[in-house]
Design a protein around this nucleic acid. Sequence first.
DNA 1: AAAAAAATCAAACAGTTGTATAAAAAACTC
DNA 2: GAGTTTTTTATACAACTGTTTGATTTTTTT
Lengths: 227, 227
Amino acid sequence: MTRELFPSSPNKGEQARRGLLLSALEKFGQRGYENASVREIAEAAGQNVGAIAYYFGNKESLYAEVLKGIGAYLRSVLGETADELRERLAGGSLDPDSARSALKHIFRTMLGEQIEGDFDKIRSVMMREQSSPSESFDLLYRDTIRPLHDLLTRVFAVATGEDPEGPLAIVRTHALFGQVIVFTMARETIRRRLGVRKLGPEHAAMIGGVIDEHVDLICRGLTPKKP
Amino acid sequence: MTRELFPSSPNKGEQARRGLLLSALEKFGQRGYENASVREIAEAAGQNVGAIAYYFGNKESLYAEVLKGIGAYLRSVLGETADELRERLAGGSLDPDSARSALKHIFRTMLGEQIEGDFDKIRSVMMREQSSPSESFDLLYRDTIRPLHDLLTRVFAVATGEDPEGPLAIVRTHALFGQVIVFTMARETIRRRLGVRKLGPEHAAMIGGVIDEHVDLICRGLTPKKP
DNA sequence: AAAAAAATCAAACAGTTGTATAAAAAACTC
DNA sequence: GAGTTTTTTATACAACTGTTTGATTTTTTT
């Protein structure tokens, strides 16, 4: 698995293009789309202002390209697990215990990914999109976020024996999902609350453990007893 | 209890000031601090550009004042409940079952508030602050968010018998908190998933019920059994 | 090495930004 | 109602915005 943000060939032009995408991601994340200027993006990439028009046409297309890259990266992170789960769901060979394990595994992966370097910039861009979605975001949502949410619901339904199409399973899954993303969405709050300068892998491990426990308690509590 | 956003006297100047604060909250929420121009804020309030300098000195002070108003509003929503809980915590007269009930009550209140109108604009501003905190956010965090988060943690600790100062209780509380705010932070996602045009009180009720269940399952699961 | 293509660059463009200024209007006080 | 304070207004300012242009440099191809 590659899992590289904005992969490119070693051509001169391709490299410059990639450099622009990387610094664009960073600046868009730091300062938002409208407030990140093409001049500072170009400068951070060691390029001239005109380079953006040359490679992407305009600022908006550059942003769309950044979102595309984010989507590809996110899919590459969970793609393998997701594909396998979809297969087992289709074949009906997913038992409740495995489903619960899979749920925890996905949550752990998401959490772990969110602590690392690359995702930090992705996170900022995605949070801004949540509060005011752009046109380009629709694509990211449809191709990446929604399919994942849908898969999570179906896996959760298997874990608890609920109806995967019913509103209860959807709401429950969304609540569980919230337990994970609150650590990135309200990251500033938890960082200050824990009194640390920066959230590191050791925090991700602890948080992952807590979420595992909560998922177990909720899933097992909702499953009719069978002793 | 008043619970009004940016309360003011009926003086001419005070009213103009309030109008500016209201449209500032709206524009800052819609477009972010840097991209919301003082001109459009003034125009939306039926005022001239210079009014902002006249009443607030500059744009940044206006923003700080908006955040102050948000803090006051948030505190007014949960203030009574919070005060009572703090008293009972100090007096040691809060038993685990009552603590758990209080937790659910607070979550219900937050959820209910978030379906209504005013909170929508507040929500946008706060989400933006989470992804890139401004200096003014320090105040909001110190006077409003942190005390509430702290209270929730202590109540949760009573409900489960955990150490209220330890990181585990903090992380657990934050995770529970996430189950609530995910329905506002990712409100568009859940709306589409449920296939409804608008989230109404009936959805708030169902979501509240689900969160109640989850809180019960987690709290009871963490409390050592007592036959 | 010559020719062609690709990449980089500085300068200029029309708009918009936050803020400052000073005059005009309105509201209030006596 | 005159005098004072408060509020509103239009205008000016320098700094910055995204984009366009045309020339120059670098790289690739022949």
